[in-house]
Amino acid sequence: MSKFLIVAEHLGGKLNSSTARCVSCAQAIAGAEIHVAVLSDAPEAVAAEAARIAGVAKVITVANAANAHPVAQVLAPQVAKLAAGYSHVFGPSTTFGKDLMPCVAALLGVAQVSDIMAVEGPHVFKRPIYAGNAIITVEAPSSMAVVGTVRTASWPAAGNGGAAAVEAASVDAALPSHTRFVSLQQGKSDRPDLQGASKVVSGGRALGSADAFKIIYSLADKMGAAVGASRAAVDAGYVPNELQVGQTGKIIAPELYVAIGISGAIQHLTGIKDAGTIVAINKDAEAPIFEIADFGLVGDLFQIVPELEQSL
């Protein structure tokens, strides 16, 4: 019988939707018993949210002032202790999970399965390699716990309606003091979160300036969409880093993805391959983005984008 421990991701007292996506992944294994661990300085509010996720049997809280910020080397020994008795320890394949889970795997002396996109059995998973250009089937040893990160774009967030018990745990682990959290500078935005949004409008190098990028924000606001960007637009300083979509940025799977002035390098395409419908607007009819777009429109984005906004 599979018993899952999912490490909750949260920020500012709110649970991240990546946690409910990990629950969906765990539920792909028949009969799995799913527990969620919330490590925080004040876990109550997050734990209450996690307890409502359908499919969660129990929420375990570890309250410790050292857990006020997610420092991987501080969280890892605690998660490794909690992991006793579990067949699977999963976290999301976000910067939080990617930072933390390999540490947990190393402490448990097991390999990690990164970016799980499909479950074939309790120990057999599919994951992408080479920027999503090959999908491999990997088998983890059944004699040890499986440590994995869940590719959030491959799994829907499990719904609400659960009523799991919340249980406080005390963990006896030596925590290092060699790392000090200094600050988190958040991009302030009222727009939907890029990784959870059902619609995303992205801009690329062709916008030409941070100022010109405003037409992307304006269109996104009209559509109720999140804003993304290609690496070129981020490198040129048009938008902050956290908006980058692609192999090394965020991997997303919105219902609608609108790529504007993005040529479509392999590294960008890997971030959007699972989008429901892809729209490409580009003046170059030969741009690789048109190979994967469901609807393509060739033309000058500075004419098309305002026109598109008006007609919505």
Partner: peptide, 29 residues
Amino acid sequence: HLKTSHYAPPAKRSKGVMVKDVAELVSAL
């Protein structure tokens, strides 16, 4: 540690269509 049993190409997206203008794009969406 991890045994890789199979490599596959990613699922192909079905061929898209080119639209001629914004009006056609909006009606398709």
